[in-house]
Amino acid sequence: MWSNILTTLFSMRFLLTIIRMATPILFAALGAFTAASTGIGNIAIESIMTFSALGGVLGSYLLNNAWLGLLIGLLIGILTALLITFFSMKLGADAFLIMIALNTFADSVAIFLLYQITGDKGTTASLPTPILYTWDIPLIKDIPILGEILSGHYVLTYICWLLIIVMFVVIYKTPLGMRMRACGLNPDAARTAGINVERLQVLSLVLSGVFAAFGGCYLSLNYLKIFSKGMVSGQGWMGVAANGIANGNYLSLVLSAVIFAVFRAVSIIFSSNSAFPTDLVSAIPYFSVFVILTAVSIINYYRVKSGKVEEH
């Protein structure tokens, strides 16, 4: 039995599962990171994913085109982000409270809209929806092993990895990214240097909304063919947690998001195995968040103590 588990863990199929499961978490993590780079903790990722997942499907159904549906999903992500900035920056409300409010009512609002539009409170299964496809990369797909790893994924998975590279370049290699990070490190200093902090924060929140929206649309328009109530199921929160672990380090952001996906995939194996108490299966990914966060803070504590890095 354990040998079965080990064979599964090191199989190609398991790797592909991880790639599929990592995509929404990576999108969410990217969203949280982009907002955090200018000093805004975006904890509304989960709700933005929910709204966009629903909006994407409805858009795709109404316009009869999956790409236009995706566009609608992204627009909804942007609008939600703008709503947050409107309340927090224009009206001076606490951004966290707004985001908590969004998360609290996201599922109910989604169900409400779903019911108004489809007459069904569970899924959009009654709407024939065009969906995005998987992509077989010509030439590469014929290479043994490598072709299997690189080719044939959902198209938004490719966009996800592309965006990860693009955002790395933007945040670390361009003047814009430098200014964004300056806002995050010390907004007052940035303001003194003539940077329009508020504008950059709005920009980063909007981008954050776009990435979260990609994550939602991946779930409902690409990976699955419907919106199903509660389908985001904490994947947005895992992205937020990945950002918490990364603490400003881009590589560890991507790594922790992938690790969460690995643990989600591991929970699949354990969910169908008598050797593991099934009550704990669904806790595995979240427990891994807890363990990693603890480990990271212990490491940081000793690094600060030994004087290798300064506390900030």
Partner: peptide
């Protein structure tokens, strides 16, 4: 799987 909603 430990959930009634996690479609993925």
């Amino acid at each position: 799987p430990g959930s009634f909603t996690d479609t993925a």
